[in-house]
């Protein structure tokens, strides 16, 4: 049951996290900025709007908004957010299942983009594929580096390994932390990899798939994207900051878990906002270099496992 609550918590928080980042970014830029509630307002408005579809669109455009949300929710069900004990809803939280679901949702988004035949989406797809080539190995290896010493390829095990400092090495944890955090910037389309605020179609990566979406489809897709962003934060917490996630199901433990999760999300999103405030966007082909570095860090974490 607790896993259902976890998923609901993630769903409620996801738009706020997006709104908070936007708000804090605006503050850093020296302006009042949009209300942190704006993403919720956007969703409300978009749901009420008409859907305009491309005349080249096939069934893909109609299915993917729902499917991608379903897949992200499925992935959310794999994750331990508040509690490590009762086990996540799905597959006992296997990282392979989790990452495959997210990869599938990425694939479906790319298909959505290509469905209308927009050249911008094609461009974004090419770039996203280029990045994903290094993102996936990095995230896998980092999670394995944290989990394998404790014999875990699933989130509860990783959590336990991270929580029990006996089996975990600080070098491994910090290397994995940097690698995962570095990859999250790419996956959530943040500066310096992708500019979420840009209006320039030619420079977009993630937003380019949504250029043709409108109305409720846009709402669903934006919501999935926000949820995915929060999922990545949660993965980082599970692997590197397991504090507060407990195995008790008492009220106090639950409260602590929620509180610590909120604080962690606050920290992570503030960090993202600050990074966005001080960075410019890289050249497209500088990103693979950066990702290769992150992959090297992940592999180094794995080696540290083996050596230390």
């Amino acid at each position: 049951m607790i896993s259902v609550w976890q998923v609901l918590l993630l769903m409620v928080m996801a738009p706020f996290v997006q709104g908070y980042v936007q708000w804090l970014k605006a503050r850093i830029q020296g302006r009042i900025g949009p209300s942190p509630l704006k993403p919720w307002r956007d969703l409300r408005k978009q749901l009420a709007k008409e859907v305009v579809l491309s005349n080249a669109a096939s069934w893909v455009s109609r299915l993917v908004p729902y499917l991608s949300l379903g897949l992200v929710l499925g992935a959310a069900a794999c994750l331990p957010v508040l509690s490590g004990l009762p086990g996540p809803l799905l597959g006992s939280g296997s990282i392979f299942l989790f990452l495959s679901l997210l990869a599938f949702s990425r694939l479906s988004l790319l298909l959505l983009g290509l469905d209308s035949g927009s050249a911008f989406a094609g461009m974004g797809a090419g770039r996203d594929l280029l990045f994903s080539l290094l993102v996936e190995p990095t995230i896998f290896i980092s999670l394995l580096a944290v989990g394998l010493p404790a014999d875990a390829t699933a989130f509860p095990g990783i959590l336990r390994a991270a929580a029990a400092n006996t089996s975990q090495n600080p070098a491994v944890a910090s290397l994995a932390l940097v690698a995962i955090a570095g990859v999250i910037l790419v996956e959530t389309g943040r500066l310096p990899v992708d500019n979420p605020d840009t209006h320039l179609e030619l420079t977009m990566v993630h937003e380019s798939f949504l250029l043709e979406s409108s109305g409720r489809y846009l709402a669903l897709l934006s919501f999935s994207a926000q949820l995915r962003q929060l999922l990545w934060y949660t993965v980082l917490f599970a692997a590197c900051f397991p504090w507060g996630i407990n195995e008790s199901s008492t009220g106090a433990g639950f409260a602590i878990a929620i509180l610590s999760f909120l604080i962690k999300v606050l920290f992570a999103s503030s960090a993202v906002a600050v990074i966005e405030g001080v960075f410019a966007k890289w050249r497209v082909f500088a990103v693979p270099r950066y990702l290769t570095f992150m992959l090297a860090l992940a592999v180094a974490a794995m080696l540290a496992d083996a050596i230390l």
């Binding site: 830029q29 020296g30 302006r31 500066l191 840009t198 410019a280 966007k281």
Partner: peptide, 16 residues
């Protein structure tokens, strides 16, 4: 030009 590379600091300060 800063907007072209997503450098918000430059955009905002020059805007002011």
């Amino acid at each position: 030009i800063c907007a072209g590379i997503g450098f918000s600091f430059g955009v905002m300060q020059a805007g002011i």
